[in-house]
């Protein structure tokens, strides 16, 4: 049986890693972008950002003061047994977020939406937000993704219903227009990882987009040819826009485009985008049935990508 204290350690590790550590795939993409960049401002901006990210790892301090909405993604093994039952996920994540906030690993970011009241510990109605997925096995894996305010608030997260009559053309146009507007003046901290969700209800496509942006590894590809082609063509097209690092102009305007989909109603196609800033952070830790911990680079949220 998995002990609550062990799972709490895993959640703590996921938060620390998710706030301070930049994953290898993101770092490699940033270093590649830096090496090919010819715009001096963007090249320098990438260089300074990479140097700062290495310091965050070494000093174990936040990579960016915006440590985001506290979002947790659990993969729960079908045979996993948690001491006291799965309702402990809520209390354990709340305790871990409050403790990380007190240590300065997370900023006191969460407020009451109407009064602006600051609880001081990032705990409130429906926050932290937990997404669960049930998988074969007997382990519990937790991922913390720092979804920052900049990437979410300034147009980086948008949805639109596209008519079947408009099809792929309508989908592509919405994505290009939405991303272009969102990156103006470096608003969403480009070059982003752009997640796209297609199909389902509005919230399903929005969830898929967010998870594609935050949980898929850069370099991963959708297994279906039509969606992989969409990922490649959108990435190439956006990188022709000349947005660059923080809107300074340059060759790399998006680090990756990840598309996920759901079947949809014949009435229409919900399309959502979700952008993750180029300081894209996630931390994943797994508790095995024998209560050992394993830090993982890949949340493997979409079954192999």
């Amino acid at each position: 049986m998995i002990q609550q204290s062990t799972l709490r350690q895993a959640i703590d590790q996921a938060i620390v890693r998710g706030a301070t550590w930049i994953s290898e795939d993101v770092l490699a993409a940033l270093e590649k972008a830096q090496s090919i960049e010819t715009n001096p401002s963007s090249k320098k901006g990438l260089d300074q950002t990479i140097r700062s990210l290495y310091l965050s790892r070494d000093r174990q301090v936040p990579a960016c003061p915006d440590t985001g909405w506290p979002l947790f993604f659990f993969k729960i093994g079908n045979e996993a047994l948690l001491e006291g039952g799965l309702t402990a996920l809520k209390t354990l994540t709340q305790e871990a977020v409050a403790a990380a906030t007190a240590r300065g690993i997370l900023r006191r970011t969460m407020k009451h939406p109407l009064t602006g009241y600051d609880p001081g510990n990032n705990i409130g109605e429906n926050i932290p937000w937990i997404t669960t997925q049930f998988v074969p096995g007997d382990e519990i894996q937790v991922t913390y993704a720092a979804k920052g305010g900049g990437s979410e608030v300034f147009g980086g997260a948008q949805s639109r219903m596209v008519a079947f009559a408009d099809g792929l053309t309508g989908i592509r146009k919405f994505i290009i227009d939405a991303y272009t507007a969102a990156t103006r003046a470096g608003a969403i901290c480009p070059p982003s990882i752009l997640g796209v969700g297609i199909g389902g209800t509005a919230n399903i496509s929005a969830d898929l987009a967010k998870e594609a942006a935050c949980l898929r590894l850069i370099g991963s590809r959708h297994p279906e040819a039509a969606f992989h082609e969409l990922e490649v063509t959108l990435k190439d097209a956006i990188n022709q826009l000349g947005i660059g690092t923080m809107g300074a102009g340059g060759k790399t305007s998006v680090l990756a485009v990840h598309v996920e989909y759901a079947y949809t109603h014949i009435a229409g196609i919900s399309v959502s985008i979700s952008s993750n800033c180029f300081v894209a952070r996630r931390g994943t830790c797994c508790v095995h049935a024998d209560n050992t911990l394993e830090v993982r680079e890949n949340p493997n949220w979409f079954g192999g990508r």
Partner: peptide, 10 residues
Amino acid sequence: LSPQSVSPNL
């Protein structure tokens, strides 16, 4: 003035 990087540690 705007930053052109996300480099708090610098």
